[in-house]
Structure formats: C-alpha cells, structure tokens
C-alpha cells in the first residue's frame, strides 16, 4: 500500500515469496523469519556490520527504478 501511494518501499524479509504474493515491489531476502535484520549467531559488532549491509541493499533498492515487482538478487 505504501508503494501504491507513491513512496518507494524496500521489503526486507526471509519470506520473499510471501512478500511477492502480497504485492510488495522491492523485495530483498534477509535473515530468518524471527529476525529479518538480525543474526544472533554473530558477535554483536559483526551483526551490526551485517545489518548495515542489509540496510544498504534496501536503500539501493529504493533508489532503483523498476517496471514491475522484483526480488532483488542477494549479492
């Protein structure tokens, strides 16, 4: 609904197929279901650095012009 209103919205989730079905446009695979932007297996500093990377990818997604919904490849 946020994209429908004209605001670009990046969607970080472990459940990318569900996000696509729900009509999200800028979808990024991230984390696990219970912590889409967390990774408790890492040390705190490593986890923050990883999370920064995930958020950076999300920002890249909102800055990417799209014609249709897309699950961004994870690289």
């Amino acid at each position: 609904m946020i994209e429908k209103a004209g605001l670009p919205a990046a969607h970080l989730t472990a459940m990318t197929a569900m996000a696509k079905l729900a009509g999200a446009n800028r979808i990024l695979s991230s984390g696990l279901i219970p912590h889409p932007v967390g990774d408790p297996t890492r040390s705190h500093d490593e986890e923050v650095a990883w999370r920064k990377g995930q958020v950076q990818k999300a920002l890249n997604a909102v800055a990417t012009p799209l014609d249709e919904a897309m699950i961004f490849p994870d690289w």
Binding site: A14, M15, T16, A17, S29, L32, I33, P34
Partner: peptide, 10 residues
C-alpha cells in the same frame, strides 16, 4: 519438516 525458517530452506 514444516516451519523451515527461510525461503531457501523451504
């Protein structure tokens, strides 16, 4: 197993 935690695992 149901409730796999990521799309990849599913």
């Amino acid at each position: 197993r149901g409730h796999n935690y990521t799309q990849e695992d599913k």
